[in-house]
């Protein structure tokens, strides 16, 4: 092997097929191929375990054997390395998309959305800590500024709509229900970790539209305009938001 750099690149290539790496290994006792295989299996095994830790309820829902097979298939085409420092913050986020097309789980059409919801919980767990705004903080904003008020959502907050009843799927995953009726209503979810506990809220359409608009950076007035529900009560929605720690700051549109 010409250099250390070439050797290390050859190790990476060994995951995709032919590589010179095996020729650099001393031949003594166990074969070079078996020795290399220990590292390769360890790496793939670590990635499968990492996926299982990112998507624990998905693993529970479909069973460990099936989930492990899906994970190996996900990792099969090319090795997906996390960023240096083993920064797994973004690693594995595309596993739900993979599940959407994975043949063995096509009988579970909700699985990709369910896994995505789990990803949002992971994201919430590792999000920056911020002290949520309180109703008292809001009261201190001069009312004449409400027209240009932009409320900032907490960094841990994510909003996600699914056509499947993910709350019922969750009950099945937790063993609280045995079956799920896919004809039941879709769900709008809000995942948030205002303090130390991750909370999943299921929102009515009006709240979901309102908070999604705020999440995109719309002003309070603009968000209100996007709610298509004559019964929508903004005071109740804001009271809910303050109670659940949804906002962490505000600014005024210029």
């Amino acid at each position: 092997m010409a250099s250390l750099l070439a050797l290390q690149q050859a190790f990476l290539e060994s995951f995709c097929g032919e590589s010179e790496y095996v020729n650099a290994i001393e031949v003594k006792g166990a074969s070079p191929q078996n020795r290399l295989q220990i590292y390769q299996k360890s790496i793939r095994g670590s990635f499968v375990k990492k996926l299982a830790s990112l998507y624990p309820l998905t693993w529970k829902l479909v069973g460990e054997e099936c989930a492990d097979q899906a994970a190996h298939a996900f990792l099969q085409d090319e090795i997906l390395l996390p960023a240096p420092s083993f920064d797994f913050d973004e690693w594995g986020y595309s596993f739900p998309d993979f599940l959407q097309h994975y043949p063995a789980t096509q009988t579970l059409p909700y699985l990709a959305d369910f896994a995505h919801l789990e990803w949002l919980k992971q994201r919430a767990y590792h999000a920056d800590a911020r002290v949520p705004l309180t109703a008292q903080d809001f009261k201190e904003i001069p009312p004449e500024n409400y027209g240009k008020l932009i409320l900032k959502l907490h960094p841990s907050a994510s909003l996600f709509a699914s056509v499947y009843p993910l709350n019922k799927v969750l009950a099945v995953a937790k063993g609280e229900e045995e079956t799920v009726d896919l004809t039941e209503d879709k769900v709008n979810t809000l995942v948030i970790r205002p303090f130390e506990t991750i909370v999943t809220h299921y929102l009515v359409d009006a709240y979901f539209s309102f908070f999604t608009s705020l999440h995109k950076g719309d002003s309070l007035i603009e968000a209100l305009g996007k709610v298509d529900d004559s019964d929508f009560d903004i005071q109740e929605a804001l009271a809910f938001a303050f109670q659940e720690g949804l906002f962490c700051g505000y600014e005024f549109a210029s």
């Binding site: 092997m1 250390l4 290390q8 990476l12 650099a24 670590s46 960023a83 240096p84 083993f86």
Partner: peptide, 25 residues
């Protein structure tokens, strides 16, 4: 050991050859 290559990191500790080049590095 080493683990980083081409902008990514292997989640394991990989061995290096014990050579003068490795020592200097």
């Amino acid at each position: 050991s080493w683990s980083n290559v081409q902008g990514g990191a292997f989640p394991t500790l990989l061995p290096i050859p014990y050579t003068d080049e490795s020592f200097a590095l």
